[in-house]
Design a protein around this nucleic acid. Structure first.
Lengths: 171, 171
DNA sequence: CTATCTGCAAATGATTTGCCCACAT
DNA sequence: ATGTGGGCAAATCATTTGCAGATAG
């Protein structure tokens, strides 16, 4: 009943309102990297008395509290994931928008070493790989975006192949 | 008289207008990673008959042509740099917004290897280090943002220490 | 009870675009 | 000449915020 993230919120002394509880639950159950729009969709499907503004406010609050981590996978909107999924990196399939996580022990050490060499203390770092599934069958050239497998990633994915380009802030 | 980037534009058959020539020159002479606002400032100081819209259009065009590369250093606006500065990475001083470039031969190979292991072909990748200058004297705790050294990076830098937070698209 | 939250709508800021005129080729 | 580029202002989009009412502790 009490989601993992709700627990974290309570521990940090956050006032738990109905909408926060729902959002916390949605975040706790998320296995992907939803953007605000998607979080809003999932949250309202559980309790319609939630507005996007609240999702934005909550997501920001949780990020400041270190419970959530904001990601930028190039789709134009921020994506979120619970902090305690451990340190890992992301590889984004540029044809489907699907995100794959992977670890690499060597990296953090290497980056820290580089920062040190430059006279700095590493505070945080970011690394994303944009790649395309290796030619498996043969027919996948322009058909890729159409028949891609399951789509764990929400809306944003659909805009990936086409590389949306208009209004608002781009890319 | 003919800037390095103007040359590239001509080679790719782009129609060279007065404003493009100026923007190309500004880009060719840039030693930092200016955002559109800064490019606009520099361009208009050479020829006032240029609008921001044109800078945006040009910068996007050059990016599509592979002449420019767009960067995101977390300031909320895109930063640009000529492609042919060779492959390198960036370390952003989170107190001053200053950007330091560094190389790391090992990285690309390592990333490509990871992508391959996951069944993908690496198309592009991104990596940024956010760090803080290692404690030199002692007095640098909250005074940092005030007395930072030279500021090769434009406007955006000033908003870094405070971690701007309002309106528009944030962070 | 009171500080904090929420919904709603309006505001923001970066970036794009429609329209019509100017210009490079 | 003619398709392409530019200025200006309006449009977009993700995100934030002011305000008045709701609510947790």
């Amino acid at each position: 009943m009490e989601s993992r993230i709700e627990r974290l919120c309570i521990d940090r002394g956050l006032k738990m309102t109905g909408q926060r509880r729902v959002i916390a639950r949605v975040l706790s159950e998320a296995e992907d990297h939803p953007d605000v729009e998607e979080l809003y969709r999932r949250a309202t499907s559980l309790d319609s008395r939630i507005s996007v503004a609240t999702v934005y406010r909550t997501v920001r609050l949780l990020e400041e509290k270190g419970i959530l981590e904001r990601r930028d996978f190039g789709g134009g909107r921020a994506r979120y994931e619970a902090s305690e999924h451990g340190h890992h990196y992301h590889l984004i399939d540029i044809d489907t928008g699907k995100v794959i996580e992977f670890e690499d022990e060597e990296h953090e050490r290497l980056m820290r070493q580089i920062a040190t060499r430059l006279g700095f203390d590493l505070v945080s770092h970011r690394m994303e790989l944009f790649a395309r599934k290796r030619n498996e069958d043969a027919a996948t050239v322009s058909a890729a975006g159409i028949a891609a497998g399951p789509e764990p990633e929400p809306a944003a994915a659909r805009r990936f192949p086409v590389e949306k380009r208009f209004g608002g802030r781009g890319r």
